[in-house]
Design a protein around this nucleic acid. Sequence first.
DNA 1: TTGAAAGCGCTAACAC
DNA 2: GTGTTAGCGCTTTCAA
Lengths: 340, 340
Amino acid sequence: MKEMVNTMNSHKNQTIGDIADALGVSKTTVSRAISGKGRIGEETRNKILEYIDEVNYKPNPMAKGLADQRTYNIGWVIPGDTIATDLPFFQRCMMGVSEVTMSENYDILISIVYDDNIAQLKRIVENKKVDGLIIGRTLVDDISIKYLKKSNIPFVVIGSTYEKNVIQIDNDHVSACKEMTSILLMKGIKKLALIGGSTSHVVNISRQKGFEDALKEYGLKLDQDMLLLNNETDDDIERSVDTAISLGAECLVCMDDRICYTALLKLHRDNIIIPDKIKIASFYNSDLLANNQPAVTALQYDPKELGNFACRKLFKVIEGEKVEERSLLSYEVMLKGSTQ
Amino acid sequence: MKEMVNTMNSHKNQTIGDIADALGVSKTTVSRAISGKGRIGEETRNKILEYIDEVNYKPNPMAKGLADQRTYNIGWVIPGDTIATDLPFFQRCMMGVSEVTMSENYDILISIVYDDNIAQLKRIVENKKVDGLIIGRTLVDDISIKYLKKSNIPFVVIGSTYEKNVIQIDNDHVSACKEMTSILLMKGIKKLALIGGSTSHVVNISRQKGFEDALKEYGLKLDQDMLLLNNETDDDIERSVDTAISLGAECLVCMDDRICYTALLKLHRDNIIIPDKIKIASFYNSDLLANNQPAVTALQYDPKELGNFACRKLFKVIEGEKVEERSLLSYEVMLKGSTQ
DNA sequence: TTGAAAGCGCTAACAC
DNA sequence: GTGTTAGCGCTTTCAA
């Protein structure tokens, strides 16, 4: 059965025409055998499929794309600032996205957005280099989202947004933060200080809400002074830690792992023992916190699942299926020594 | 001058034909105006270019790609294991790559290689979805490299390889490690233990070589017991730290930041004060080490520059230019408190 | 200096 | 069930 294999072919660029000629059928027939669309004889189809396999023919996606106006690429939009990109979050998310694109025979095209410079994003959209996009993070006033809404290309966002009619995939930050905060309160830890990042990130606003909701439900009045938000630099964070301590905080609740890690370093430097002198917890877990001594109580999410889920949704949108606007994925509260 | 702008056009998909019609010229002429190839009247060219700008026409890269057999994409190949992808290294490298692709009107297509599963890599090569690739990391026995060599597609690697005829961009690890080790020796620190990662990574072998070269140059005999290599897990690392200490090491030289960080945690836990009781240094710097108390002496590289450089080289290869096979980028020795 | 026409590799009416 | 043909949007000979 191997005698028909022309080994030369494996190096030459096979086209649908070549294989049609070789088999004495038309290009259309070959196309039909491959796509499965249209009527075609069982026998011819098998003959073609076998041959294609034999000579390892791969259709040219440029040609296919041109013909049916698809790129077989999806865009993965991530922020370009180092602080953000250093986070394993985006890489892990992308792994999840990749699992799905892989199985759909799609590829991932990168688009990096620097602050409010969406030139790169515009490029891949205007140049029609993708069939849809996933935005890896949302801002309160997000020009990427605004732009994509106008451009009419399918897209989903990881994170939450106040923009209407945007497909969103997010962890349930509000519930998660509320639950973790409640647990702390139930453990008898009442004087909580919240040390947070930029309020221009939707996620941070959700975290704050969860925190406040828990206090309210517990019948505690919110102490505005204990809300130490918008910490951008390490200095900001250290200053906030000092403030919290001077206000008599029993526990530092940090909005994310970077903040928490910086706080840990400072406490360590100041010889403030955890959890004896002060307790600490984080609304976002990471290896750093899990490996700390003592390990830090934190919320655990699965970024990969987020990416996987988002991408599956995107494909549905691309196929024109109706999908629900907002999906919330789960979380886990990891209780560790830092709040013992 | 604005009266010719048909605002409808901004939403319709403009083709080269549309703009040819609108201006009463042929498609060929428009094509020439855009590409700059072929002869064309100054006046016509300007008229066309102006109009194109006015209606914000963007050529369809699929069609262009099909015609001139280019994809205007380059592949960025990264490992899929979490340990590797969690490192900011690849993200920062990619930023450097992105700067270049951006300016060349190219885009980045992701390809993730899981251990020795190069299915995804094969896909984008066989499907002709990229014009060239950059491999983000090299292994001693690297099947990605072997595959790409056979496939005859332009590619460069970040890192070093023993394979012949492969364009390599790397930091000068051997010199860097040798220099840092020499500095330690000159400071009078003689009993050095090397705690290293997998010897299946070329970079780790280079680091070991630099370390050994320094000892040799200094006239010191290498103590094999002080070579603690192939530490994969945190447990491995902690065990190696114990071994080094029991052998009377004055300084732990860690091959990378993760190893160093794990060692730091262990020393801290065991209440071994740095640099009083033991010194520590790392062949790879990171925020973690720089922010540690005391800060850790380490080698500093610039991954972004690596990506940028690699991508510029790749474009030269794609254009058929001759480039030198191996380029070594610089490094910096950051002397900090951990070796004081 | 400009244009007509063929072709890149594939799809999809519309015949037969 | 299979083939013919006309595109998809752009490039590039070859003529004019």
